[in-house]
């Protein structure tokens, strides 16, 4: 690539890119192994807020993916470090399964609200409670603002709509910690020690994966699996570096053109 330095890191989205719920994208495990044989760092970056890192790891290992917990960087990790840094006690609107990533954080008498993907908590009572806290001055932290995600039986609302609603109700702006925030992508590269211009991101979400990464200075590859819908590649400007059928094609492109 003219004007770019050699590729040092590949960031890979999980849900919708490597797997859809309990099914791996065909060929994805082998493709990941081929990528590992090249001299690039691999990190798994996800806005999956329902699950702790440990859960994610087990699910992917169960699907025969070869990865380690320290390679996973999630929006929950990013939220936790923000809470610690500002010494906030959160009302956590996250699924029970994600709570372990917040172990040790004081949640009594909350003075902040953290919104993740929590279908069980996105009900009228809990949202009213969150709303009243924010109206009284509690900061609103969004793990991410995805519009929707794909389930086996169809599309389902993500946390973004609920965060947007709370912002509207209280006339405040949420601090977003997950994709597509620039800070999320740069934090994910911290321990790799390379600059965004030396990294590429592969994901199924045009705005949050590809647009976000490109905005942070990386290349972005959009795969047509998961939540991808016809024409998504035209929703961002600049367009994706590449749009391809699925993860194995993305890896092939990297191995042949970017190294």
């Amino acid at each position: 690539m003219a004007g770019r330095r050699a590729l040092k890191a590949v960031l890979i989205d999980l849900s919708g890119t490597l797997h859809i719920e309990d099914t791996a994208v065909p060929g994805a495990q082998d493709a990941l192994n081929r990528l590992r044989q090249a001299s690039v760092a691999v990190k798994f970056v996800t806005n999956t807020t329902k699950e702790s890192k440990q859960n994610l790891l087990e699910r992917l290992q169960h699907l025969n993916f070869n990865l380690h917990e320290k390679e996973i960087f999630t929006s929950l990790s990013a939220a936790r470090s923000l809470l610690e840094q500002k010494q906030l006690r959160p009302l956590l609107l996250v699924e029970d399964s994600a709570l372990e990533d917040f172990n040790g954080i004081d949640t009594l008498e909350p003075n902040s609200v953290v919104v993740g993907l929590a279908p069980d908590h996105f009900n009228y009572q809990t949202l009213n409670r969150a709303f009243r806290l924010i109206l009284d001055g509690a900061p609103l932290i969004a793990i991410h603002k995805a519009r929707y995600y794909k389930q086996k039986d169809g599309l389902a609302l993500g946390p973004g709509p609920f965060v947007t609603g709370l912002e509207y109700a209280t006339d405040c702006k949420a601090t977003v910690v997950g994709k597509p925030e620039k800070s999320f992508f740069t934090q994910a590269l911290t321990d790799v020690g390379c600059s965004p211009s030396e990294a590429v991101m592969i994901g199924d979400d045009a705005r949050d994966d590809v647009g976000g990464a490109q905005n942070a200075g990386m290349l972005g590859i959009l795969v047509k699996t998961g939540k991808y819908r016809e024409g998504d590649e035209n929703k961002i400007n600049p367009p994706p570096h590449l749009t391809c059928d699925s993860f194995p094609d993305a890896v092939e492109h990297i191995l042949q053109n970017l190294l």
Partner: peptide, 16 residues
């Protein structure tokens, strides 16, 4: 107490 009104859910669906 205060309760969220329809506009909040309208914004949610608009965004989604």
């Amino acid at each position: 107490g205060l309760k969220l009104d329809v506009g909040v859910y309208m914004k949610a669906l608009e965004y989604a």
